[in-house]
Amino acid sequence: MSYRSEPVHTHGKLPKTAVVLVNLGTPDAPTTSAVRRYLKQFLSDPRVVEIPRAIWWWILHLVILPFRSGQSAKKYDSIWSDEGSPLKVHTEKQARLLSGYLGERGHKVRVVYAMRYGNPSLPSILRQLKEEGCDRILILPAYPQYSGTTTASIFDAVFAHYRSERNVPELRFIKHYHDHEAYIEALRKSVLAHWELNGRPEKLLMSFHGVPKRTLLLGDPYHCECHKTARLLAQALGLTPEQYLVTFQSRFGKAEWLQPYTAPTVQALAREGVRKLDVICPGFTSDCLETLEEIAMEVRHDFLQAGGTDFNYIPCLNEDDGWIRAMAEVAELHMIGWPTLMTPALKEELEEQAQITREAAARLGASQ
Rank of each mutant, 00 (worst) to 15 (best):
H9C: 10
K16E: 07
V22S: 05
T26C: 09
V35K: 05
R36D: 05
F42K: 12
R53A: 15
I55D: 04
L65T: 08
K74A: 15
K74P: 08
D77W: 09
S78E: 14
E92Y: 00
L98W: 05
Y101T: 07
L102E: 01
E104A: 00
G106V: 05
P120A: 04
S121H: 09
L122V: 11
D135W: 13
R136G: 01
R136P: 01
L138Q: 06
Y143S: 08
S147R: 10
G148L: 12
A152R: 14
H161T: 06
Y162R: 06
R166E: 06
R172I: 13
K175W: 09
H180V: 06
I184D: 00
L187V: 02
R188V: 10
K189V: 01
V191G: 01
A193C: 04
N198D: 11
G199L: 14
K203W: 13
F208W: 06
F208A: 01
P212H: 10
G219K: 08
K228I: 05
A230H: 02
L233M: 05
L233H: 02
A234M: 12
A236P: 02
E242Y: 09
Y244K: 04
Y244N: 00
V246Y: 00
Q249Y: 09
S250A: 13
F252D: 04
Q267V: 14
R271T: 10
E272G: 07
V274R: 07
R275C: 07
V279N: 04
D287Y: 04
D287F: 03
C288P: 00
A296R: 00
V299F: 06
D302Q: 05
G308F: 12
F311R: 01
F311T: 03
Y313V: 05
C316V: 06
E319T: 01
I324C: 01
M327Q: 10
A331K: 08
L333A: 13
H334M: 12
H334L: 14
L341C: 01
L341I: 06
M342P: 00
A345H: 00
K347E: 06
K347S: 03
A354L: 14
Q355R: 15
R358C: 08
R358Q: 14
R358M: 13
E359G: 03
R363K: 11
L364C: 07
L364R: 09
L364N: 09
A366V: 11
Q368W: 11
